[in-house]
Write a protein that binds this DNA or RNA. Structure first.
Lengths: 187, 187
DNA sequence: GTCTATATAGTGATAGAC
DNA sequence: GTCTATCACTATATAGAC
């Protein structure tokens, strides 16, 4: 792995653990085993490097989600697979955690991958809900766009609860609660 | 309002906007119109001041929630009142946003008010769900603790979606989705 | 209680040698 | 491409005068 790649990977990791304001160029350089000059040779500065790292994390997240969405089986099962996906709850969501970073939120450029990621997740789950409704899995009255937003929110909120409690169990409890409600929403 | 009080109020505000790692003592002093010596006279340092601010924000949040939980009417309506409470979604949750702050999460002392706040919300909503179930509002099969965790998570996750999108509408969409699912969960 | 001075370390970057 | 030197500024205090 080249130096530029190592810098991006290290930035991804540190942004996940500490967010943007909590991560300094020096931390990144030490983590990547690269010098100052090296980092500023490959990237224009902290925002540039962070943008590339955030974009990559967003791609990875979408690709992992898409794996679950594409599984065979009923819509409910595919949504459940996404929500129950093995997650290290106490590390948080590598994309969602940046939604609470003041400098990311203040920068339209850094925020854009977050917006895109959640727009994708909501749209994709909405499609599955509509598909399931047409097959009789869910009640006709379902407002798919709203339920999709709620299900994505359950996962993101579950991270908040888990990190606040310092316990992964709360994460699973919240996700199971969301799926419990969805499973009961039948004709 | 005395200087100490002004410092706490300013810290509450800045922690809400920028989190713990994104807030410096200098910012707090300027916001409060107090000097360095003044701050360090009243508080041992940044962690001490932050702890008092976090505790106060947690109390305020619980008190606002409790107002809604105590309203007359069916359990569903009281839970809906809490979830639909007027919120400035783009400012985030003053307690939940700290769950993504590395130094808050790393400090058991600073994290404790977060754990307590969400434990309270989950317990309180679980009580309402049990009460509603006994009155026939919800299906007998409801797993109240899990559904309660999911509903709290919907609100916290809705903040993440709204801040990522830079739009308050997503917040309302997610919350309505959660209530939609709950409303359909009847015997 | 509040003020100013001082201190050590870190932040985010630029300059120029190698 | 990478290294070291340097820079202006901020972070988080402590010390002591007023």
């Amino acid at each position: 792995m080249g130096t530029a790649e190592r810098l991006i990977a290290s930035t991804q990791q540190l942004l996940w653990e500490r967010g943007y304001v909590g991560t300094s160029p020096k931390m990144i350089q030490q983590h990547a085993g690269a010098g100052q000059g090296s980092m500023y040779h490959h990237f224009a500065g902290k925002p540039d490097l962070a943008l590339q790292a955030i974009r990559r994390s967003a791609e990875e997240l979408r690709s992992q989600a898409e794996e679950k969405f594409r599984e065979p089986g009923p819509a409910y099962a595919r949504i459940a697979a996404y929500m129950l996906r093995e997650r290290e709850a106490l590390r948080g969501c590598r994309v969602g955690r940046l939604a609470h970073d003041p400098e990311v939120v203040a920068s339209p450029i850094l925020r854009e991958p977050l917006a895109e990621t959640f727009a994708y997740l909501r749209r994709r789950i909405e499609e599955l809900l509509v598909e399931g409704r047409e097959r009789g899995e869910f009640a006709e009255a379902m407002v798919a766009a709203e339920v999709a937003a709620a299900l994505v929110a359950v996962v993101q909120g579950a991270y908040v609860l888990a990190q606040s409690a310092g316990s992964v169990e709360v994460f699973e409890q919240a996700v199971r609660g969301g799926l419990h409600l969805l499973a009961a929403y039948t004709a």
